[in-house]
Amino acid sequence: MTLSDFVTARAAGGPHVSRAARASRLSGLVMAAGAALLAALPFLVFSTVTDTLVNLFVLVALASMWNLLAGFGGLVSVGQQAYVGIGAYTVIALADLGVQPYLAVPLAALTCAVFAVPTSWLAFRLRGDYFAVGTWVIAEVYRLLVVRVDSLGGGSGKGLTGLSGLDQTLRGALTYWIALALALATIAGCYLLLRGRLGLSLMAVRDEETAAGSAGIDVGRAKRLVYLVSAAGCGAAGGVITVSSLSVNPDAIFSVQWSAYMIFIVVIGGIGFIEGPLIGALVFFTMQQFLADYGSWYLVVLGAVGIAVALWLPGGLWGLVRSRTGLSLFPVGYHVRRPDVRE
């Protein structure tokens, strides 16, 4: 056997590299069917159900965006409520100018991405934990600036105009669909983004920033891109919150509570997995519904569970599932198999 024959033979018998295991192809079909079912829900169930689900979708979207930022980009922010607020107020302001509120939601995302550019210049000067508190201060600054604008209702907030002409049932359904679209878009967005070159760079940066930089990755650019995408997603979520609640209050929309929700949903579900925010949001949402009669105790439980998971289960619930079963609904890594070993 000549050397070239040997090399060819080895290459032919080399490991088989693929994205998806068979299980994740199957689960892809199941998820598509699930999404179709969710989209048909307004025709099937009472509006109380769909109205409640709007909250769940918003939580899924927010948590996905925070997961992208912190779990993949390594940027632990406690200030994403800045973009929830800016998004909400963009919808209010655009509706005042005569833009259809539902169409204003994507524009809110765009506005937030624009605001995120100068914000990132400041925030990226801080690292690690100080980045977290710094983004929080910046969110406070945005709140304090917004309440000074009288045309936005000042400190007492403002109602949304432009939806009063719509039939209530139709409005409920449209809000439901836009919330569902937001949740699906954020998950799909994360998935597509992380499958590509950016995903690889990000994970390298998150795991070891200096090494990633020396391997030729433009660390600053990768982080900034993630920050902008996350801001846009949170802005759209803020817009959906506004078209759902029909009004905005500065203290509530810029509240750090949004960050608490995002962070603990992601941590409980599993940080660094696209599935994590989904699982976490479902757990949080269920808990919220069950403890609804007990005031703010669900937040106490949320904080305590969050602490426990951070200490004893760093991969969250999905990390647990994955380590037991190897299941991955959104495969962003690669499976490497030897051809002679059957799956």
């Binding site: 962070i263 940080i271 937040l299 106490v300 305590a304 951070a310």
Partner: peptide, 26 residues
Amino acid sequence: SLAAGPLATLLVTFGLSIVLQNVLLE
């Protein structure tokens, strides 16, 4: 939390903050 990594300390203190706030509120 120190042993569990830098993110864990942030999460633990933030969790503590949420717990303390809401217990005081109740």
